[in-house]
Simulated scan of single mutants.
Amino acid sequence: MKADPAVQRRLLDLAQVDTELARVAHRRRTLPEIAEIAEAEKLVRAKQDALTTVQTTLGDLDRDVKRQETEIDQVRARAARDRELLQSGKIAAKQLTDLEHELATLVRRQSALEDDLLELMERREAVEADVQHARVELDKAQEALSDAARRRDAALADLESTEAKRTADRKLMTTQFPEPLLALYDRVRAHKGTGAALLQSRRCGACRIELDRSALGKVKEAAADEVVQCEECGAIMVRTAESGL
């Protein structure tokens, strides 16, 4: 294949644009914020689970407290009725003894229930503090996630702007090349990553391998408008005064 040497040299500009586009694509895939967001999401889920756990414990304690208060109210009401009977003087002696015994039992029962209620209230207070702490931790984790997402979106917006500009540049540049040359360049780029590179100091600018004597001889013998390719990577080697030929 033949192409004007000046046209071949313009392939270097096209390769530079393609390198930048490839860098943008790589950057988009490997943004540090992407990994940061994944970790932040895991932390948010963990903090949500922790909050759910302590909220469930608090709910259980609330039910226990309510049940305990209900039982205390029942004991108090029964004791109040017994006292009214004792004070009425309308009960027999045997009933009086049984009633006094029951009242004493109710008093002890009420005391025990109130002690248990106090312990439940203390536990509830501690768990409520845990709930508040868990909420604060979840808020912090969610803010960190939001911050990472904002930074990712800003980075992506910047990359998209660069990509749009360089894609437009590429579209304009490709009109400068004959179709066969551009097709060869694109085919090599698709398979090897670099379609064209400068042959500099007898070294291919794409694979960085120095040409051996045989390959170098073939390049020297090739006409200036001959399109030569690296035998190692297939890239079009653009020859200039820097090629060392």
Rank of each mutant, 00 (worst) to 15 (best):
R76H: 04
L21D: 03
R45I: 13
D225P: 02
E137W: 05
E179L: 15
L96A: 13
K47H: 12
V44P: 06
Q142D: 09
V54Y: 09
H26T: 04
H191L: 14
C207D: 14
A46D: 09
E71A: 07
R170S: 11
D73Y: 13
E102G: 04
H26V: 02
L85E: 12
E160D: 02
T174E: 14
Q229F: 10
L245G: 02
A77Q: 15
A79R: 15
M173G: 00
R29P: 02
R203V: 02
L51F: 10
A168Y: 10
L211A: 03
L43A: 06
L138G: 04
R152S: 07
A196R: 05
L85N: 14
K192Q: 13
A50W: 06
A241M: 02
L245M: 09
D49F: 03
K47T: 15
I34T: 05
E20C: 05
L172A: 15
E114L: 00
T70E: 13
D49G: 08
L198C: 08
L14H: 03
A104W: 09
A190D: 14
D158I: 09
A40K: 05
E36C: 10
G244W: 04
K218F: 09
A129R: 10
K218N: 12
K94D: 01
I37M: 06
D98E: 13
Q132G: 01
K2H: 00
R202V: 04
A40M: 08
L43D: 00
L216Q: 08
A77H: 14
A129P: 12
T53E: 06
R9H: 03
C204W: 03
K90S: 12
C207T: 08
K90Q: 13
A134H: 09
E232G: 11
V127R: 04
L181F: 07
